[in-house]
């Protein structure tokens, strides 16, 4: 399954495709794509029988995104301080990012969790919606828009889902102060 997936993903010009250690990370494949490829990735996974478990965001204000380092196993087994130091050392003047994470999973007995992530410019977090393809993404995208202010272009209704209907703030942004 994994090798098949990897070759399929290769056609999408991904920024990174990493096989991860399921025992530690809880997922098998970590794919990073550009915003223009998010829908293609969803289409590919949908075609292969995956379902979308969740969409969420991460605000990397003033930090270098972590999550898909090449070798998370070795990082984890060392003492965490060192891992952190390593992460810091590798960074040079981070441009603030906003990350959108899609968790895909399957229900047919093949254990394969795929994470698709897409890093956006924090100043202008926009990417196309996948809700036309996967109706279940509708609410997840609305929720992500609520919390992070990420705009899913083409989404039919981005009005607040969980926040009050007149909410104009995005509480999970790191610079949000209540």
């Amino acid at each position: 399954m994994l090798s098949e997936l990897k070759s399929e993903f290769a056609s999408l010009a991904p920024l990174a495709v990493i096989e991860t250690d399921y025992k530690v990370k809880g997922y098998h494949l970590d794919v990073e794509v550009g915003p223009d490829r998010v829908v293609d990735a969803a289409e590919l996974l949908d075609r292969l029988g995956f379902f979308l478990e969740a969409i969420t965001g991460v605000d990397w204000l003033g930090k270098n995104p972590v999550g898909n380092q090449p070798d998370p196993v070795s990082v984890n087994e060392q003492d965490p301080e060192a891992a952190e130091a390593e992460g810091e050392a590798g960074s040079d003047a981070p441009a603030d990012k906003m990350e959108v994470v899609y968790d895909y999973n399957r229900t047919d007995g093949v254990l394969c969790r795929v994470v698709v992530r897409c890093r956006l410019d924090r100043a202008k977090p926009e990417l196309p919606t996948v809700s036309r393809l996967i109706p279940g993404a509708d609410w997840h995208e609305r929720e992500t828009h609520d919390f992070f202010g990420i705009i899913f272009t083409g989404h039919h209704d981005l009005s607040p889902l969980l926040l009050p209907e007149d909410a104009d703030f995005h509480p999970l942004r790191k610079d949000f102060k209540a």
Binding site: E53, V66, A83, D103, R113
Partner: peptide, 19 residues
């Protein structure tokens, strides 16, 4: 350690996932 982790369990109502 820095990084993201995903775990899922079967709750009474379905898959509870936590990232």
């Amino acid at each position: 350690a820095a990084g993201d982790y995903y775990g899922a369990v079967e709750a009474a109502r379905g898959t509870f996932g936590i990232r």
